[in-house]
Amino acid sequence: MSYCSKDGRTTISLEVDGKRVKAAVSPRLLLSDFLRGPCAAKGVHVGCEHGVCGACTVRVDGQAVRACLMLAIQTDGSRVETVKVLGIADAMHPLQERFQARHALQCGFCTPGILISAQTYLREHPAPTRRDIEELLSGHLCRCTGYTPIVDAILDAAELERR
């Protein structure tokens, strides 16, 4: 059994975007704050801290989850992935390329969470319907685009990946 008092810290080690990270964390530190702070993963955006908006969505051990609803201390030994694992500016992932081509982002604040969700979902569901993607996106709030271009971009990317 591991234990950490409310005033104490526990050292955790995990993998964040392919890099080994070791850090001392207090029990109440949210994963979202841990990733943005000590891990400098600024692509994890915090929009509500109660699990509704989806902006902080990251992949923990292969599953897309809300980083604001996990404690950093829970990720000891885990593999955490943020938007950084998709692609870089001059070698973008098909999802990223299609988001740009479809004008599926404006302010871009909700985008990293959506990209992680979509990438993870498409691994399990390579041939989604439009309705599937709309349901997937019901777990993310976007206030800029009206969602239609996001649905189009994800469907495009799924098709590209299937080819």
Binding site: Q100, G108, P112, L115
Partner: peptide
Amino acid sequence: EDPALLTGEG
């Protein structure tokens, strides 16, 4: 704007 926003570099 998009390449930075899409890669977490906003």
